[in-house]
Design a protein around this nucleic acid. Structure first.
Lengths: 106, 106
DNA sequence: CCTTAGGTACGACTTCGATAGTACCTTGGC
DNA sequence: GCCAAGGTACTATCGAAGTCGTACCTAAGG
């Protein structure tokens, strides 16, 4: 494959999907993790997702369809980054989520 | 009965429950409606909830347990208001949701 | 007192989402 | 060329959530 995964236009994304995506603590965790990194791509394998491979795939797809992340398939590994348009489409949302969440629990 | 319904301490409310509560379009609709009114009590019967009575009861309970609303039973009718502490516990969250939603669809 | 309106509690049904197992694919290294 | 690592697609399972019907409750008004 080796290409970008299909993602919805940012204008097509429904708030329902965004809030449902962020309601799951695992997905919210990786989003907050991503917000704490630089704006570039990061390997999917570098995130804390203690679930089966197919379940991780599922969670990334949900985040893509919520317009939150962009994902690129590299054949043997895939990479994600936050979609920069998201902040303009849903201003303050991710910041509010981050503010409500304890930064991490190591 | 004629009294206040039990609600969690605002500090005990989990973000999971808040986001799940707001992910439902019906519940989000009544919350946004409530935000557009004055801060006092409003009859539950004055909101747009085209569902069976028992289903409406369910949705109000979810909003209570998410720390978003306070509810008082008056015997033949019950009344809700936004919890003023919510904004301090989850700053910017409701505002972000309101900003992301078209004001209404009449 | 009786009726009605608004609402709760409980149980049943149904739909949806999180999870995982298996098969298969692609890049990279040996 | 072969194999391992990372990941997707598909399917199945299981529990949670949305929905509703029924029985019952309470205050308000005639």
């Amino acid at each position: 494959m080796a290409g970008d995964f299909p993602i919805p236009e940012i204008g097509e994304v429904r708030l329902d999907d965004v809030l449902s995506a962020l309601a799951d603590p695992l997905r919210r965790g990786v989003v907050l993790d991503l917000m704490g990194r630089d704006d570039g791509e990061h390997p999917c394998s570098s995130f804390t997702l203690p679930r089966a491979k197919s379940t991780r795939t599922h969670h990334w797809r949900v985040l893509r369809q919520a317009g939150i992340v962009h994902q690129r398939d590299g054949g043997n590994g895939s990479f994600v980054r936050l979609r920069p348009e998201f902040g303009a489409r849903f201003p303050g949302l991710l910041d509010a989520v981050r503010a409500a969440e304890p930064p991490a629990t190591p």
